[in-house]
Amino acid sequence: MSDTAQSFPTRVDISLTVNGEPVDARVDVSRHLVDFLRLDLGLTGAHAGCEHGVCGACTLQVDGEIVRGCLMLAAQLDGAEVWTVEGLTETGALADLQAAFVERNALQCGFCTPGMLFAAADILAQGGQPSRVAIREHISGNYCRCTGYEAVVDAIETVAGARARGEEVSA
């Protein structure tokens, strides 16, 4: 490593909000967002399934959009607004989806589930009643090795219908 490259800091300070709460941290620049949440903040709802951006188990929300938590570095989060499954559970934003997942048994081992919920919430946020094909397409970046996906599609379809009809789905 040359002298010039050594002038790049290996730890940086970040200030952000996580689940609505302000967080200040000094992070190793190699630390990805999932490890930051899990190891530094104790938010273990996001799971590291592959750490190369394929499995989707670490999917969560940064600045209003779903992202792969393993494909962002914590160092990039200065000023960001991060929401994890723990936070959206507390706000109730996922309550109808979570209830539908439980009711339909749209999860087995649960390892993919937090990420899957974010992918599901993302298509639901587009409004209307998406087709099963559209739902399948939208969650196709999230591996689930247990369910065979059909129950997940059913649960999302149910919530979309209930939301479109303005119904409350009890949590």
């Binding site: 273990t44 081992c109 649960g110 589930t113």
Partner: peptide, 14 residues
């Protein structure tokens, strides 16, 4: 199931 959908699972890495 409810625990798991809320991200409250406790896997070994947790």
């Amino acid at each position: 199931a409810r625990r798991l959908v809320e991200g409250r699972g406790r896997y070994v890495d947790d």
